[in-house]
């Protein structure tokens, strides 16, 4: 089934996918590669998410962490935090999950062509950004500087460490990683992620920034980017809210007027800056 056909189908219908490969990332986090049962492909844009269903347990929104240039497999990186993600985590290769999607707004990678690109990620927030990183690196010549700033709690909790090393090894990409605390042996930065922004070497007047991580990390991260001179209209964030349908019909993900599932999850920061300030919105 291709994307056009998918849109014609009922968006509440799930499509079965087979788990091709499971890779443990962190103590509580794993990555699954999925392929559609009965063949076919899955096209998506970086930053979009799927509703993943596991038999009898229910559905949960999970952002896609794979390469948008490779629609032959669907890749999700999942942390075991609730009943449903636990249930998905208990599945093994060869078993099936249900997929609805892709849903939501993408990271505007193409709109950022011609500018410097700053990607600021915290914790598991690197997963929804990875498709944008793949796409940016595949189009590296279309950007000025490309800077990836990543913060994690400790060295053991750094997501995708091998890829970070690989990206750091490229001469055309700056990768800075910091952790909140570290034991000797860690040769990198220690300190909050916001500190990485200073001296990252981008031109703030011609920079687009993508920010993803826990809400509080994003708030402080954005503060640092604005302090560095990036305009709020050039900063994009990915939001998280409760979602039951993914298509704007169940109401749960409202954040003021926007539905995070269909008007987001990626928002231009200046359009939601006020909402960030309101508690319990």
């Amino acid at each position: 089934m291709n994307v056009a056909m998918q849109q014609l189908a009922d968006p509440m219908d799930i499509r079965p996918f087979r788990i091709e490969k499971i890779r443990k990332e962190l103590a509580d986090t794993f990555t699954m590669e999925l392929v559609p049962e009965g063949g076919g492909s899955f096209a998506f844009k970086p930053g979009q998410f799927n509703m993943l269903y596991t038999f009898g347990a229910g559905e949960v929104p999970i952002s896609i962490s794979g390469d948008p240039a490779d629609p032959s497999k669907l890749v999700h990186t999942i942390r075991r935090v609730g009943a449903i993600t636990q249930a998905i985590g208990n599945l093994s290769e060869g078993m099936a999950v249900g997929v609805r999607g892709p849903f939501g707004t993408p990271w505007p990678v193409e709109e950022a062509f011609g500018s410097d690109l700053v990607i600021l990620a915290g914790g598991l927030g690197l997963a929804p950004l990875r498709p944008a990183i793949y796409m940016a690196l595949a189009n590296r010549h279309r950007f000025g500087k490309v800077v990836l700033l990543y913060g994690s709690r400790s060295p053991a909790e750094i997501l995708f460490p091998k890829e970070l090393e690989k990206w750091r090894g490229r001469f055309d990409t700056k990768v800075r990683v910091t952790v909140d605390r570290a034991e000797p042996g860690w040769g990198g930065h220690v300190g909050v992620v916001t500190k990485l922004v200073t001296g990252a070497g981008f031109d703030p007047m011609h920079t687009v920034a993508f920010v993803c991580g826990p809400e509080i990390m994003m708030r402080y991260g954005i503060q640092a980017l604005e302090q560095a001179g990036i305009d709020s209209s050039s900063i994009y964030v990915s939001m998280e809210r409760n979602m039951k349908c993914g298509i704007g019909l169940c109401g749960h993900c409202q954040w003021g007027a926007p539905f995070v599932c269909k008007d987001g999850p990626v928002f231009r920061f200046d359009e939601v800056a006020d909402a960030f300030k309101v508690r319990e919105l």
Binding site: I78, G122, A127, R153, D180, G213, P214
Partner: peptide, 21 residues
């Protein structure tokens, strides 16, 4: 001030509970 701010953020544990993923 930056050190104090950073210390508070570290105390808050910015990355947990984490992002959907």
């Amino acid at each position: 001030a930056h050190r104090l701010h950073a210390a508070r953020m570290q105390m808050f544990d910015l990355y947990g509970p984490g992002k959907k993923g």
